[in-house]
Write a protein that binds this DNA or RNA. Structure first.
Lengths: 326, 326
DNA sequence: GTGAAAGCGCTAACAG
DNA sequence: CTGTTAGCGCTTTCAC
């Protein structure tokens, strides 16, 4: 049999469809008695409201889309998990979309989904600021690991985090460090480099940048070779994946980590804890980041185009075996 | 301004709404000239079809829901990625849902989503066969890493895989092995144990089972202690996460892997390659598994209740440092 | 407190 | 080849 509708429930309960509708969405405006009756027939028939019909009329879909620039990056797992949990707490569905590092693909997916979701969570978006603003004009948007003036965002405190990295490295005696840059159009890559350079200058240390590199383990080889060529005693990689690749290549070339070279990553992914040596990395409560982002999307009026909240979450430098005295 | 509808496009192009509709969904049944005109006005107005309205009428949503029993398990990442890619190839959206190992939560989410999606991908479902059949009565369903008579499914060939594991271990001289079981209501856990036991018997080896254990790194401690107590020289853990936890605990207790004990996992997650020693594990093309599952869901008539295709994909035993001579 | 009726945006007959 | 006309399932005025 076809899925029952409010009409079926209405006739079963001997009331009008509008009463059935109210019994579900506006319990206060129906007498307790009829409400009981309606709910009973509904349960008996196995009635479930059709989300599309509801959305068509109300414009609310109880769905948020999370667009991730590269779903294969373990870094996002915690973000996704946090977002998913918070969304479900409010009975929202999380729609996951992978942009595969392609701005064009990201844009198209967003445009396609725009009429069907209540808002967007954009994780490490590769889109230019202007496009992001256009999207925010249509739907509420919360940026994750990305800041754009005027738009709501949640990020980790990389300025402070990079200061911690530099402090840690200089305390170990390192005087020159090289940063292995992330993708060219990554805001995060630019931010990390700026913060690192700034922190290095204040600490009287030299920081150079090479790259960009695609932040994958497989790129660690090229990155490591470049870094060695640079001659620095400490390497700060754009993320843990790249850092792990670097360590592998270094070891392969007969160098010892951290005796010969120290390596630092970003994100504190699971593998950072199990690789050898353990990877010193700048972590943070990524699940919280996902949680807060959904919170913002659901509660704040992210539609308005000014003074959106920008939440900055603390980082923590997780010390493991990959860093040591220069 | 509110989002333009087909009415806006129709009046702008000087045609009827149905013509606009056809221009988009049935290009062949409109003259090239009018089609051009419609598309031009649509583009000018920035018109986008409303998926809800379309779904309400047609019953097709171009969306498939993938329900994952525990999204924090890295094993699923590849599945998700493969499914996402295949879905997008057909312009389908992947809706990701986390069941957090709770059958009740899984059931509720599925019921809620049923009217809004074209089908379900159920990864390692914790639901009893009967519930799964009920779901399949409502919507097309493809099971991943789970088999139920009469339902479509995609699984890795664990029978052959376990044979490979046992062959590998016996060739190294191991005569007793212990299996650290996964969750109680996990079909995969039962399947692996059955296949392992069978293969062990045929090889003239002893296999015992202890557990169940929640397949997380944190449970590796208890699992390792239990295994040591058992006295076996080789440990086969329900998955890589558990195996890694076991190795950590073993090392902590002063044992050497693989000199004192060999450890084998399942899934070949990323961390298995970077931990020390590298983890010997039964892998397979997990992305393919996701890909094939979506393929099945989209092409096969999974609605009918008999003779559904059950695809079995090959496994590969990835040898790393965690296994050695007894 | 409850019912009748009008749509939300779109598609699918059915005519022409 | 194109226009007219019903709805899809639900919510929401507006009466009663």
């Amino acid at each position: 049999m076809a899925r029952p509708t409010i009409y079926d429930v209405a006739s079963a309960a001997g009331v009008a469809t509008s009463t059935v509708s109210r019994a579900f969405t506006n319990p206060g405006r129906v007498s307790a008695a009829t409400r009981e009756r309606v709910l009973a027939s509904a349960a008996e028939l196995g009635y479930r409201p059709n989300p599309h019909a509801r959305a068509l009329l109300s414009g609310r879909h109880h769905t948020v889309a999370m667009v991730v620039s590269d779903i294969t990056n373990p870094h996002y797992f915690e973000l996704i998990r946090g977002a998913e949990m918070r969304a479900r707490m409010s009975e929202y569905t999380l729609l996951l979309v992978n942009a595969e590092e392609s701005p064009r693909m990201e844009w198209e997916q967003i445009q396609r989904l725009a009429p069907a979701v209540d808002g967007f969570l954009l994780a490490a978006s590769r889109l230019p600021d202007e496009n992001l603003r256009q999207i925010a004009d249509q739907r509420p948007v919360v940026l994750m690991s990305r800041e754009v003036p005027g738009l709501a965002s949640v990020v980790l405190d990389h300025v402070e985090g990079c200061r911690q990295i530099v402090a840690h490295l200089t305390s170990l005696g390192h005087r020159e460090l090289v940063y292995l840059a992330g993708p060219r159009n990554s805001w995060m890559a630019a931010t990390r480099w700026a913060a690192l350079k700034e922190a290095a200058e204040q600490a009287g240390t030299t920081a150079r940048r090479i790259g960009p590199f695609t932040p994958k383990v497989s790129q660690g080889g090229a990155a490591a070779d470049g870094a060695l060529n640079d001659g620095a005693s400490a390497i700060v990689a754009h993320n843990d994946l790249l850092a792990i690749g670097v360590i592998q290549r270094l070891t392969q070339r007969g160098l010892r980590v951290p005796a010969d070279v120290s390596v630092v990553g970003f994100d504190n992914i699971f593998a950072a804890d199990v690789c050898t040596p353990g990877l010193t990395t700048l972590g943070g409560a990524h699940a919280d980041l996902g949680r807060v982002a959904v919170e913002l999307l659901l509660t704040a009026d992210t539609r308005a185009n000014d003074d959106q909240p920008s939440v900055v979450l603390p980082t923590e430098l997780v010390l493991r075996g990959s860093t040591g005295a220069a």
